[in-house]
Design a protein around this nucleic acid. Structure first.
Length: 561
RNA sequence: AACCCGGUAGUGUAAUUGGUAGCACAACAGAUUUUGGUUCUGUUAGUUCAGGUUCAAGUCCUGGCCGGGUUACCA
């Protein structure tokens, strides 16, 4: 049964590999790679690719290489290399000793370029950039041959070697593959293989002043590493003929490139360029801002690796562009944290409750269950006294029909404590409610009435005398609309859709005292409110919590209607 | 009017490769509940269109429509 279910849910990539295994195409070998460019931080879209590549290798008893695609020194940096490694490990994957860099292959790539020149498959073109562009033609009309297309092998070799030797300024020459300027595929109209860049590379320093392009590098890197299945996103579909051309023309190992749909989520953006823009323009606090879809942002927000991996398997792998609903991610973390997060009580928007029949100097310690989903999590003691904080939203002076919580004359249960009844509403001169005077029924200790009477609501609370203050940061979607690209006026751009309320800071929330020494990274459920984690900014003097996600709230949903 | 790719409930996906259109999330209704949480049950809702082949088409063929990508010395 399980076997059957698995067979039925196999995505098209796995089906291709199943078939390859059946026919023995790669002698039973499965070798994938994850090839990030070290020019930014990883986001949840990369997580999908990581899960796919590493996941497939695990399933087929194969291997996955981590290879940095570092062929553009102007944008790349070791800072990114380290962060990417850290994020992949955090996600739960291991490349063991197979850490590679495309820049490791610059020597071999250069040799191959000379080979292509000798075989009349490449030439040095000395046209300026704009003329190369113009010569390429348009999608519907053929390009024209470069005047340098018929240079002799010796001339090409000489020029290419002098390019490498640094004799020319940037832009003076490029090396182009000699394919077909009339090809219906724009990409095959004599694509550029090498350009001159007099810049330091983060790994090779000043060793090179000519750098290979992505297309001239990627397939050959795969070939050198013995990759079998080169899995990439849909936008490289157009590049596959070129990938194939280089491998075939060079006569080297030829992996199969397979393209899948990248992950998109509602209410956010997923391109490195845009994320960089948000950081640079100060719309967020940084790459690790808890509102960012980066792995660092999600981590700081309180997301677990398991929740992210779970989302990646649930969104599926296909060949058509899709936008997954953000609630999928939210449900994924709720599911994980519901099982694992200890429960605590915290009041974010407090109103004072005074128990008029409870002695001033009396205190009580009540047992509270740490996690109803996990008996092993045990219990803790929560102090109780005459004055308490409860949530302002949990009281209404003039409640509508379906409001079950506290109201004048009404009785509710305080979680793990007592039944209380609201006797009097205290207001200031302006009519604002400042306190609720209630009576407590001492016979209901623990939360049950001996006479069997029921209440319709259970509220969380914190003893005012024992409460610990904390800053709590409440996050909402980064963008106010599902699709940030959908703008009302033409003059506006995607950033006009940023959600102005994506961060709401509660300066003073009241926590139960057991939270007083909580440490950065710890995750809790604040009962009835949501899941929260201790922020990196938190200290024993000033506790700071991030709201990872709210609980599902069917009352809020009902009230909206 | 170029080339490549795609189109299955609101969303994301599956359909043993031509044989009963299923799953998850969302929505809605109900049960349970010391979290209006969790859990459980049920309901609504789908093959882009037109032809063709076939006993039988989401699946194969032809054409249309719609969407995405491609005119970087980025990846």
């Amino acid at each position: 049964m399980t076997e059957n279910e698995n067979a039925e849910s196999r995505d098209f990539v796995r089906q291709i590999i199943d078939e390859d295994q059946k026919t023995g195409k790669w002698d039973g070998r499965v070798h994938t790679r994850f090839p990030p460019e070290p020019n930014g931080y990883l986001h949840i879209g990369h997580a999908k690719s990581i899960c796919l590549n590493f996941g497939i290798a695990e399933e087929f008893d194969g291997r996955t290489n981590l290879r940095f695609d570092d062929t553009n020194p102007e944008k790349e940096d070791t800072e990114y290399v380290e962060s990417i490694k850290e994020d992949i490990r955090w996600l739960g994957f291991d490349w063991q000793d197979r850490l590679f860099f495309a820049s490791d292959y610059f020597g071999q790539l250069y040799e191959w370029a000379e080979q292509l020149i000798r075989n009349d498959k490449a030439y040095v073109c000395s046209l300026p950039l704009d003329e190369i562009r113009a010569g390429r033609g348009t999608p519907s009309s053929a390009g024209t041959n470069s005047p340098h297309r018929d240079r002799t092998v010796d001339e090409n070799l000489d020029l290419f070697r002098r390019m490498k030797a640094g004799e020319f300024p940037e832009g003076a020459h490029v090396l182009r593959a000699k394919i077909d300027m009339a090809h219906p595929h724009m990409l095959l109209r004599d694509p550029i293989m090498y350009r001159i860049r007099h810049v330091e590379h983060h790994r090779t320093g000043s060793e090179w002043c000519i750098y290979p392009t992505y297309d001239y590098t990627h397939g050959q890197s795969d070939a050198l590493e013995g990759i079998t299945h080169s899995i990439c996103t849909l936008e490289f579909e157009n590049h596959r003929p070129l990938y194939d051309w280089y491998c075939e023309t060079l006569g080297i190992h030829h992996p199969q490139q397979i393209e899948f749909n990248r992950l998109n989520l509602t209410y956010t953006v997923m391109s490195k360029r845009r994320l960089l823009e948000l950081v640079n323009e100060g719309h967020v606090g940084g790459w690790d801002d808890p509102r960012m879809p980066t792995l660092r942002g999600l981590r700081r927000r309180g997301y677990t690796p398991a929740a992210i991996r779970n989302l990646c398997t649930h969104v599926g792998v296909t060949k058509h562009n899709a936008v997954a609903d953000m609630v999928l991610l939210e449900n994924s973390i709720r599911e994980d944290l519901n099982r694992t997060a200890p429960r605590r009580m915290a009041v974010l928007n407090p109103i004072k409750v005074v128990l008029t029949n409870y002695p001033e100097d009396q205190e009580d310690l009540l047992d509270a269950v740490n996690n109803p989903e996990d008996e092993g999590a045990g219990t803790r003691s929560v102090p109780f006294s005459r004055e308490l904080w409860i949530e302002r939203d949990d009281f209404m002076e003039d409640p509508p029909k379906k409001f079950f919580r506290l109201a004048p004359g009404r009785e509710v249960r305080l979680r793990y404590a007592y039944f209380i009844r609201c006797e009097e509403v205290i207001k200031d001169e302006d009519g604002n409610i400042t306190e609720l005077h209630c009576t407590v029924d001492p016979d209901t200790r623990g939360g049950n009435a001996p006479d069997g009477r029921k209440v319709k609501a259970t509220l969380h609370w914190v003893s005012a005398r024992h409460a610990v203050p904390a800053e709590v940061r409440l996050y909402d979607h980064l963008f106010a609309v599902e699709d940030p690209d959908e703008v009302e006026e033409e003059s506006k751009d995607w950033k006009s859709n940023l959600n102005p309320d994506s961060l709401h800071v509660v300066e003073t929330a009241w926590l139960e005292p057991s939270l007083s020494d909580s440490q950065s990274g710890e995750r809790y459920q604040f009962e009835r409110l949501g899941y929260f984690c201790v922020d990196a900014d938190s200290s024993n003097d000033q506790l700071v919590f991030n709201r990872t996600v709210t609980l599902r709230d069917s009352w809020a949903r009902a009230r909206r209607k």
